[in-house]
Design a protein around this nucleic acid. Structure first.
Length: 569
RNA sequence: GCGCCGUUAGCUCAGCUGGAUAGAGUAUCUGACUACGAAUCAGAAGGUCGCAGGUUCGAAUCCUGCACGGCGCACCA
């Protein structure tokens, strides 16, 4: 719709210029926006104000000329000039009614846009270290990244979800030592447990599982052999936990990328890390100093240069991450998105430097999400990974459920810290927005069942096909003309723009906001318009048509959020 | 000390690349179910957009400075 209007405005300007009514060298791309105030119409443009200077005419006079040439189109009910020179456009009822036909025709595909044009984008998110259970912040990234993938797919991108597993660092050794020590304790052997090892109770649980499976035979084993065996066992358990929890909330990764691959020599004898450093060296960004190998990130606006290879010969985490990102681009992605917690934001500059130095400037989007603070009954829940005092994400899911968790995580803009109130998320009341939206969907299904004479308890009926059979294709939609009906259709028409903005700017909270808007608009419509009326079957079928379209769009937006659209609650 | 993010109604937050009288939800008060789901709807009240300058036809939005809060600032990951 916006494209159509934009073209109409532009055509009007071109025509007026050709007719000599306007004197312009260049025709601008008109900017259309939705006025805040509904009395200003469905769309507005300030193009007349922008043209005032180049055309050397008063904005209102230009607006008159454009408006004159726009009116008369079947999709436009009115074109008005307002204020200093705004052109307010009101869509005709016919244009809005056509939206309903689009929804019915396109179904689950309604709202698709094509800003991606088939480009391949990879989204890397969560990427929790495999040394402990997922925490609540990881849950937020999981919800965010997965919805982002869904939205980008809806916007014409080919997407891939990837989890980077940091399974190669010293932390893995610390992790192994911690588990081994607990194992020894279980077997009554006194061991020293270092301050900086993992303190969490889950370490003991992992040790216990190994104990249960294999008995005490590792007590007498060579400490190194024990550690390396325990490392792999514990790692496997944690990875399994991560996959299980993520799958439980509907998040499935296409690729689990192991950092270890980056340290393995390839066909040319060089590991990916070594060869990516070689690439940077050829490009002239590498130097040696104090026995270490450095990457001159200050060439790219970083505060200081960064070490890639330490004096002791080992590589930094950053070196591995450079190799990893080189690998991503080598795999042919046109665009790469990383979602990081705010505690890693200090890392942004150097990563951007690396991607630019590798020859892919501008292809990396770093989304920095603020952290999650858990509250229970107004009290902050204190957590520390080090001391092991924590509510895991799995605990939270068990308590509030996947729908509430995912919905709450997406409700705030990502650069806003999230205060997550466990009590509120659990509450099944109007205070809880996820129920508000789901209720609208369930209510619609109930109306449809009612109109079709189907008992609410009958779960054998598939709503969508039932509705298609119930509501005729040629329902007299021209009967839909009250304000409540028009508002509903306007809101449905907005969905594509929401997808476009969410995809373009990676703003997932637009989805939940729209979902709540649409639900509210529907509830208002419902209050004012009786849908099922045996005395007026024409109007009934037209309204059922609108109601079913609303059901479809609610299902679509909830699908992007990753939350279920229940048919009864 | 430096950097990033934030500061908007009592509370939690929107405000789309500068636009018209700054919006929702919630809390408070008042109304609406003997017809489709009241987990709903309608109305009232609630603001110095942290502070001070600047840019221009026009600023919550852009620039500068300051204040407050969160998070970072390793040859850790």
């Amino acid at each position: 719709m916006i494209d159509l209007l934009s073209r109409l405005v532009r055509d009007a300007i071109v025509a007026a210029t050709e007719a000599g009514e306007l004197t312009l060298v260049e025709i601008p791309e008109p900017h259309l926006e939705r006025p805040r105030d509904p009395s200003h119409g469905d769309w507005a443009t300030n193009v007349a104000m922008q043209l005032a200077k180049p055309a050397r005419m008063a904005p209102r006079q230009i607006a008159e000329i454009i408006a004159e040439r726009m009116s008369g189109h079947a999709d436009i009910a009115a074109v008005e000039i307002a204020g200093p020179g705004f052109i307010n456009i009101r869509l005709s009822a016919a244009a809005l009614q056509r939206v309903l036909r689009d929804v019915r025709e396109q179904g689950a595909d309604y709202g698709r846009v094509d800003i991606g044009k088939g480009r391949r984008v990879q989204i890397e998110f969560v990427s929790a270290n495999p040394v402990g259970p997922m925490h609540v912040g990881h849950g937020r990234w999981a919800a965010l990244g997965d919805s982002m993938a869904r939205v980008l797919e809806h916007a014409g991108f080919e997407t891939q979800r990837e989890f980077y597993v940091n399974d190669a660092g010293v932390q893995m050794n610390t992790f192994a030592k911690s588990v081994a020590a607990r194992y020894m304790e279980i077997n009554g052997v006194e061991v020293e447990f270092a301050q900086d090892w993992y303190q969490g109770a889950y370490i003991r649980e992992i040790a216990q599982e190994i104990m249960d499976a294999e008995g005490p035979k590792w007590v007498e084993a060579d400490p190194e052999a024990r550690e390396s065996y325990f490392k792999e066992q514990a790692y496997a358990q944690v990875l399994d936990h991560l996959k299980r929890v993520l799958h439980g909330m509907g998040v499935d990764f296409d690729v689990w990328y192991s950092e270890r691959e980056l340290h393995e020599p390839g066909a040319d004898g060089l590991s990916p890390i070594e060869s990516s450093i070689a690439t940077l060296r050829e490009a002239g960004y590498i130097f040696e100093q104090d026995g270490a190998t450095w990457f001159r990130t200050t060439d790219f606006d970083d505060d200081k240069d960064r070490v890639l290879k330490k004096a002791d010969g080992s590589y930094t985490y950053f070196a591995a991450d450079i190799a990893y990102h080189k690998n991503k681009f080598d795999r042919g992605f046109d665009r790469v998105i990383d979602i990081w917690g705010a505690d890693h934001h200090g890392y942004v500059k150097r990563m951007e430097a690396a991607v630019a130095a590798l020859g892919h400037p501008g292809k990396l989007d770093l989304v920095i999400g603020q952290l999650v603070n858990l509250f229970r009954d107004g009290e902050a829940v204190r957590m520390s990974k080090r001391t092991g005092e924590m509510v895991t994400f799995e605990d939270l899911l068990d308590e509030v459920g996947e729908d509430a968790a995912r919905y709450f995580f997406l409700r705030r803009s990502t650069d806003q810290p999230l205060d997550f109130d466990i009590g509120l998320a659990k509450e099944q009341s109007a205070e809880n927005p996820v129920f508000y939206v789901q209720y609208a969907h369930a209510r619609i299904c109930s109306i449809l069942r009612k109109a079709a004479g189907i008992d609410t308890a009958d779960e054998s009926v598939e709503i969508a096909s039932m509705a298609t059979a119930l509501i005729p294709d040629d329902a007299p939609l021209h009967l839909l003309e009250t304000e409540a009906e028009l508002s509903l259709m306007r809101k449905l028409a907005e969905f594509g723009e929401v997808v476009e903005v969410a995809a373009d700017q990676l703003l997932m909270h637009k989805l939940t906001r729209y979902a709540e808007d649409l639900a509210a608009t529907f509830h208002q419509f419902y209050t004012q318009c009786r849908v099922y009326d045996p005395e007026n079957l024409d109007l009934t079928s037209a309204r059922l048509y609108a109601v079913d379209a609303t059901r479809q769009v609610l299902a679509n937006v909830l699908g992007l959020v990753g939350v279920s659209a229940p048919e009864r609650m």
